[in-house]
Design a protein around this nucleic acid. Structure first.
Lengths: 99, 99
DNA sequence: TATTAATATACAAATATATAAATATTATGC
DNA sequence: GCATAATATTTATATATTTGTATATTAATA
């Protein structure tokens, strides 16, 4: 799939997905969710030492833009990567930003 | 290199790099520069049918954030990818946003 | 040197995003 | 139903980004 074959809508969706990822807190969240891990809002909030509302907010953005999925289980909501291979983006950028 | 091993500064740089890419016009620009191609501002501006100033502006952002490099040759400035493997980000996102 | 081509920058208006604090919703267990 | 825990949403303020238009810079050439 070449980008030149994408419709403007798909191009926008790709940009929105990347925009969602392109934030220090949200990169850190994705880092927590590597290897198929499913974590609750509380776990993210305590692990990253950020406000509960902030964690929920960023998780909501990532879900809204198609990066994450979530599954409610009682009082908890577990978040996880929608596409496992998205972490390869992180690998690539971390390589590029360290050289 | 795991992200958890990145310093806050490197995390910010990675986020800035992704933010630079995360825009429909700039994704289209990167798409033009695949396979090591080097293009001038004029070529980008006519290929993508955007204003000259807009092309220059977006190219400047991509260069400033470490995504592109440029080389002046007389009246022309040629832009090209700084890290060839950055296009793998596009491949990944295009796959994810089409499924 | 004057003209033209190619690129880059400055500015302003509209839009979008980030952050924190407060409040609301959803679900459990007594 | 009431209290509590876990999430989610709202609101307001500050900041950043995008876009177009105009202008400035840089380089070649007549």
């Amino acid at each position: 799939m070449k980008f030149s074959e994408l419709t403007p809508e798909q191009l926008d969706q790709a940009a929105n997905m990347l925009k969602a990822i392109a934030h220090p807190v949200r990169i850190s969240i994705l880092n927590c969710l590597e290897d198929g891990k499913k974590l609750t809002v509380s776990e993210i909030h305590s692990t990253l030492k950020i406000e509960q509302a902030t964690a929920s907010h960023h998780l909501g953005i990532l879900k809204d833009k198609g990066v994450l999925n979530s599954k409610r289980d009682g009082k908890n909501t577990f978040y996880f990567l929608k596409h496992e291979n998205l972490t390869s983006i992180l690998d690539c950028v971390s390589k590029c930003s360290c050289s």
